[in-house]
Design a protein around this nucleic acid. Structure first.
Lengths: 218, 218, 218, 218
DNA sequence: AATGAATGAGCCTTCATTCAT
DNA sequence: TATGAATGAAGGCTCATTCAT
């Protein structure tokens, strides 16, 4: 217990406390949504898991939907953090292993397969969620494009700006596809998966690739 | 009131009638699930759209969940029908165009993006749905593997049995990924999408590919 | 139990049944609103009193507010029925007695003092209720103006059209005032009340009144 | 922070401060009750408007109901103040204009039409409120009776003691009726209203009136 | 086979009130 | 005196499912 003697400290503590509460509720929501889905998870069970009263949850989140919006943000932040700490020199082998691990664990945390589908579905029925979702995806995509460009530069590979966007798109499709498939083909042979990844990831990472073929106009 | 003269005819008519009713209810459910999601769509609105009473719906489907199970089956059948009529000689250009169209339309009918996510999410909370889903995916996957093998044979390409499975897996990941992304990146530049597909589809179709690299043991 | 042999009869019964249900719920609502007020009366207690389930109430009334709207209509209808059966020849003595009785009983049924205030207050916070209320009042006012004119005609009294409106307004103010006062001065000496009425009602009924003074422009 | 040098001064300051706080809270409650009604107005919004914390409100008023009780008192005091400053010589014209203005403004402040109905309704559900309300009405009535008597004396009119009570009752009924009608007939033609008042107010003020008719026994 | 009225459990949300600081 | 975080009970409303007809 930090005891502070001045108001500023006290207020800072209150803010910290509030942020911590908020996070606990949000994490509880994440867990319950994953376990039971958005509709089946009740606000009461979320509050209970967070160790607060139902009413208090509504001080931190306007309503149940606001939890989804906050989760989207949280996911984006975690993605960005993850990418920021991924060395540009990361080799294919690492990707193969990490993607396989992702598959095996059902999408990890921020890409949890069930949550991913729940949020996608929720977006279809709620304009605000959809808007937030599209925005977050765009930002995440930009981040990955930047990462690819940085990687090219480090490896002294010259490629067109569009090329990075094409590769990022492929990566994101693969990624999303893997996440979804992890629930629909949970018993997939990981060896098969890795073989697939080893075949397709070079297209994403671009190592030793020929110059991309010319793009046709739409 | 249709008057039938013999019992057999009458029963046959009745069965036909019943099957038609069932189908109308199922289609209504599909439409409502797509429009409003599984939870928001009420049994009453589904029955209304189908032109029957609420009570009658329960003669054809034991409960709301049964509608999801039936939809999974319906999707599988439509996939199978689609693959059965897809010539083994189909070239990459066709695939590129069809996948782009799929993206643009949000996943078409049996792969409707919203329904797809709804069902994925539903599977996470319902063992029976999950079981059915996994089964259907396995069958659909086998079908595609067969199609690839047939294609290789027609083109007189010799490949290992596993190679087809690897390529099928890639295709399914791509497919699922595209469906999901169509809701999360609805404004994606279709030219970019096609460029991506032109780059990756050769890996699936295997035309002009080098021999696949040796697979490591898991 | 009336047994009907044809569909029409059956449907008619269903409609009758529905109307009866609706009425029972509405009357239950009236009673509970009077006893407990609009906010304190719960939908459950209303349904219970009506002998139906909570859910069924919502088949007949979209929401709690709709009960208020229906009550306003019901009140208007009862007022109109009451006025329609009030002989134009009704003398002052009858009015005095009836108004005193009204006071003593707290406003009777359609003018129940508590309900009256509840609805007035509700109107202040709900535009739709307010609109309905104003409409109903205007209609009720017109009715009373007509009644006064009819009375004048029967008594062969010639008065300006505006005169009837002035007297109707006075009557309505008195009426509303009495209703409200019946809760705020419940122990009022009825003799005093009657004395007051005997003094002011001639102005309303116009018997033996001088010609009204000329009206100034606003 | 005001620094006071002696205890007495300090306590006096504190008391003043407390009274001011109390008044600010009460006025905030009045405003919110008028805007939103008794139930819709939350203690938090009242405190906020008063510029104090929720918890502090409970130091000045035991609970939400206590605010209503205090408002009834406040209204009574304002009425008494108003009457005390109303010259006994006030003529009918002034009354007509002031009552019309009252109508137009929805009852002014202490007789605000919405608050008036809210409080009336609240009294029906709460014995303590009802008691206070009846008491306040009796006092206000007495005041008006006194005022009428004073007026008679100034005009050297001799009337029975009961006569003043009859006229006071009429006035209060008119008053209450006008207040209520101002919400139920907000678009009333003010000319009509004034015509009505000019006709009925002589009965209240008693100027040039014949001796009242003999009163019958109840 | 067909209807749709009826049920009732359950969820989201609000808010008067309390209390640790 | 003052704060505002926290509680928790309760209410409006929905909807899957049943059942009398």
């Amino acid at each position: 217990m930090t005891t502070t003697t001045n108001r500023k400290g006290s207020r800072a503590n209150a803010e910290e406390h509030g942020a911590a509460q908020r996070l606990r509720i949000l994490n509880a929501a994440r867990q319950r949504f994953i376990e039971q889905g958005f509709h089946a998870a009740t606000m009461e069970s979320i509050a209970q898991l967070a160790g607060v009263s139902t009413g208090l949850s509504y001080r931190y989140f306007q309503n149940k939907r606001a939890l989804v919006l906050a989760l989207i943000e949280q996911n984006l932040e975690e993605d960005q953090r993850g990418l920021a700490t991924l060395p540009a020199s990361t080799g294919m082998k690492t990707f193969v292993d990490e993607l396989a691990a992702l598959y095996e664990s059902g999408g990890g945390d921020s890409w949890n397969a069930v949550l991913f589908s729940e949020i996608t579905a929720a977006g279809a029925r709620d304009e605000e969620i959809q808007k937030k979702l599209v925005e977050a995806e765009a930002l995440a995509n930009d981040d990955f494009v930047q990462w690819l460009k940085l990687r090219d530069k480090e490896k002294s590979i010259k490629r067109s700006a569009e090329d990075a966007r094409v590769r990022a798109l492929l990566m994101r499709c693969l990624f999303s596809g893997l996440v979804v498939r992890s629930t629909r083909e949970p018993d997939l042979d990981l060896g098969l998966l890795k073989a697939m990844l080893r075949r397709v990831l070079p297209l994403v990472l671009g190592d030793g690739m020929d110059n991309e073929p010319p793009r046709k106009k739409t």
